[in-house]
C-alpha cells in the first residue's frame, strides 16, 4: 500500500512535471534582435566599443523551475567589429583572437540561480581562444509575450566582465593593465519553438 502510494505520487509528479517542461527558444539572429557587445578601456581615458556581428544560439526557459534555464551561444570570432578596418584585422590576427585557428567562441551554461523579479545569474563556460573559463552573467528578463507575426518571444539582457589575461592573447598585455577587464553586454531575444 505504502509502495503504491509512493509510486502513485511519483507518477503524478512526473505527469505534473511534463506540461511544465522548459520552453525552447532560438535566438533571433536571423532578423538580428540579438547583440553581443563589449567595451574595454582605451589607455584608461575612454571606452572602446565593439561587437560580434555573427553568432547563433538557443536557450530554454522554465518558469516553474528557473534553475533549469539553460543557454548556449556560438560566436563567429571573425565577425568582430570595432568600426575600424585595421584594428579589426589586428584583432582577427594571431596577436589577438587568431580566428584562423579559433574560428568560434562558445558559451554554454552550467547552472542558473534565480534571484526573483526576473533576475538571475547564469553561470557557464566560455570557450575562447583555446581557453575555457567559468563566467557568471547577471541576467535580467526584459520582457516576453506574443509578437505581431504569430510567434512568441522572450528577451533578456546580460552583463558580465571577463579578464583579458585569462585568454592568453599575445598582444593583450601590451594594451596595459587598464585594458585587462572587458565588459560584455548581451541583448538576446528568443523566438519560442
Amino acid at each position: 500500500m505504502k509502495f503504491k502510494t509512493i509510486l502513485g505520487s511519483l507518477l503524478i509528479t512526473l505527469f505534473m512535471a511534463a506540461p511544465a517542461m522548459a520552453e525552447n527558444y532560438i535566438i533571433d539572429t536571423q532578423k538580428h534582435h540579438a547583440f553581443i557587445q563589449f567595451k574595454v578601456k582605451h589607455l584608461g581615458y575612454s571606452w572602446l566599443l565593439g561587437r560580434f556581428d555573427t553568432f547563433k544560439g538557443t536557450f530554454t526557459y522554465d518558469a516553474k523551475h528557473p534553475e533549469n534555464n539553460t543557454v548556449k551561444v556560438t560566436i563567429d570570432t571573425a565577425s568582430i567589429d570595432t568600426n575600424h578596418a585595421k584594428r579589426d584585422k589586428h584583432l582577427r590576427s594571431a596577436d589577438f583572437f587568431d580566428v584562423a585557428k579559433y574560428p568560434t567562441a562558445t558559451f554554454e551554461s552550467t547552472s542558473y540561480e534565480d534571484k526573483g523579479h526576473d533576475r538571475g545569474i547564469m553561470k557557464g563556460l566560455l570557450h575562447l581562444h583555446g581557453v575555457t573559463k567559468q563566467l557568471a552573467i547577471d541576467v535580467d528578463q526584459v520582457g516576453t509575450g506574443p509578437d505581431p507575426w504569430g510567434g512568441y518571444r522572450r528577451g533578456f539582457e546580460g552583463h558580465t566582465i571577463l579578464h583579458l589575461s585569462d585568454y592568453h592573447m599575445p598582444f593583450a598585455p601590451k594594451l596595459g593593465p587598464v585594458s585587462e577587464d572587458v565588459q560584455l553586454y548581451l541583448s538576446i531575444e528568443g523566438i519560442r519553438q
Binding site: A78, D81, N83, A85, K89
Partner: peptide, 29 residues
C-alpha cells in the same frame, strides 16, 4: 586593407583617399 570597412584615409593629413571597394568581410585579411 585600411579601406576594407568603408573608411578612407588621408595622405599626409591632406588629400583624402576614399574607400571605394567593400568586396568581402575578409578583404583586409
Amino acid at each position: 586593407i585600411p579601406t576594407a570597412e568603408a573608411e578612407g584615409f588621408d595622405i599626409f593629413s591632406g588629400l583624402h583617399v576614399p574607400a571605394l571597394f567593400h568586396l568581402t568581410p575578409k578583404q583586409a585579411d
